[in-house]
Simulated assay, not measured.
Amino acid sequence: MSWITAEQALAQLGTKPQTLYANVSRGRIGARPDPDDPRRSLYRQEDVERLAARQRGRRPARAVAAETIAWGEPMLETAIATVVDGHLLYRGQDTFVLAVKATLEEVASLLWQSSAPPDFGGKAQVRQPGMPAAYRTIAELAATDMPTTGRIRNVLIADAARTVSSLAGALAAPGNGPIHMRLAEQWNRPEAAEAIRRALVLLAEHELNASTFAARVTASTGAPISAAVLAGLAALSGPLHGNASQSMAGLVEEARRRGAGAAVATHLRQGQTLACFGHRLYPEGDARAPALLQAFAPPRPFAELARAGEALSGERPNIDFALAAMTAAFTLPEDAPLQIFALARSVGWIAHALEQVETGALIRPRARYMGPKPKIN
């Protein structure tokens, strides 16, 4: 792997430094500190060459092949959700309109195409609510539930409602009220209920992301609905997905000490990715973020970082930024974004599981072997 200086990268790209920093922030160009001068950064030559070739209208075959599994192939047909002109649509309905009043239960009815909102209520609650309990609860269901093969849709939707209900019982207060109210009660933050409701609606589904793909592959084997949710939970736990909002902690602390502008500038000059800014599906900015931020007043460091980040990188805050800001605004548990993400996205995972079951197809890609030459006698 080869690394080049900013000057060399800019010469190949023919762009301004701000564009180079934006490409680093978006994850398109890898960067690392220069070992000879930590104040400067080096940039991955292969990434720069790929972007330069794209701008010239041609791309190396090896670059095309390498990118097919990242924001490319495989592509699966779905009628559940898509992003069009910056708008996230659930079965054709604009989520930013749904976020004004809808509950997660109503969104589940829409995504699952059920005749009525499912019942996610329950009196049972684990001894210590939280993500460890959520994993244990869903894992036990996955080990004991029936497979999906040979069972009609209404029965599978009943399994789906029981799975989400069990997940809610591991995270939220017991009861029959909407999940957002039960989460606010569990955290003793009733004033946060409206923001939580919006977040649940906006996060319920997002096309074929990493955790949804994991859930859909699992469902394609005929595994139980709860097993698909368990697969989604496993993928969601990564720092590049459901835990992304926690990556803002260092930037927020630096903004408190030195000011937002200085914090952002330092990150960009060092070639560091600006956490929780930008999203590849939303070139003009992740519209889910302002839809959630409308529900509360972001704390001062977050408001200042939003302005400084956009001014210096050209990128706008994304939904992970909004979740981190919400957590700080209402003093929610540190992993509240992951808990909200898990409850919300479980509805989307199940929608994809149900759709995949209807296809009756197994998802089984092939691998391109790049190892030592086989020795066959």
Rank of each mutant, 00 (worst) to 15 (best):
A228P: 02
T144D: 08
A351R: 10
E73T: 12
V24I: 11
L104T: 07
Q272T: 12
T148M: 15
P147Q: 07
K16L: 10
E106T: 14
Q125A: 15
Q294F: 00
P365H: 08
G177Y: 03
W71S: 00
A193L: 01
V64R: 15
L230A: 14
A52H: 06
A361E: 11
T148F: 06
R58S: 11
W71T: 04
A219H: 07
L233N: 11
A231Y: 10
G30V: 02
L171W: 06
V264A: 09
P60L: 09
W3T: 04
Q128N: 11
S2V: 00
L202D: 05
G121R: 10
S245Y: 03
A244N: 02
P33M: 05
F302P: 04
P60A: 14
A11G: 09
T266R: 15
V83H: 13
P317I: 13
R44C: 03
T19V: 06
L338V: 15
A215L: 00
G30W: 07
S166H: 13
P178W: 14
V107N: 08
T273W: 01
A351F: 14
G150A: 09
W3V: 04
R288Y: 13
A199L: 01
R127F: 02
P190Y: 08
E185V: 00
H180Y: 15
I69M: 03
N209V: 13
I196A: 02
G30I: 08
A223Y: 09
K101S: 15
R216C: 03
E334P: 04
I29N: 14
F120G: 11
T148W: 03
G175A: 03
S165M: 11
V64A: 10
A336Q: 08
P118V: 10
A102N: 06
N318I: 10
S247F: 00
T148P: 01
Q8V: 11
P298T: 03
A6G: 15
Y282I: 00
A244E: 03
S211A: 08
I225K: 06
A351Y: 12
W3S: 00
Q246I: 01
G86Y: 04
L167C: 11
H241T: 09
L293R: 12
S109E: 13
E194P: 04
A297K: 11
E194V: 08
A249V: 04
K123Y: 07
W112D: 05
E105G: 14
A53H: 03
I363L: 15
L354V: 02
D286G: 07
A116G: 02
E334N: 14
V164L: 13
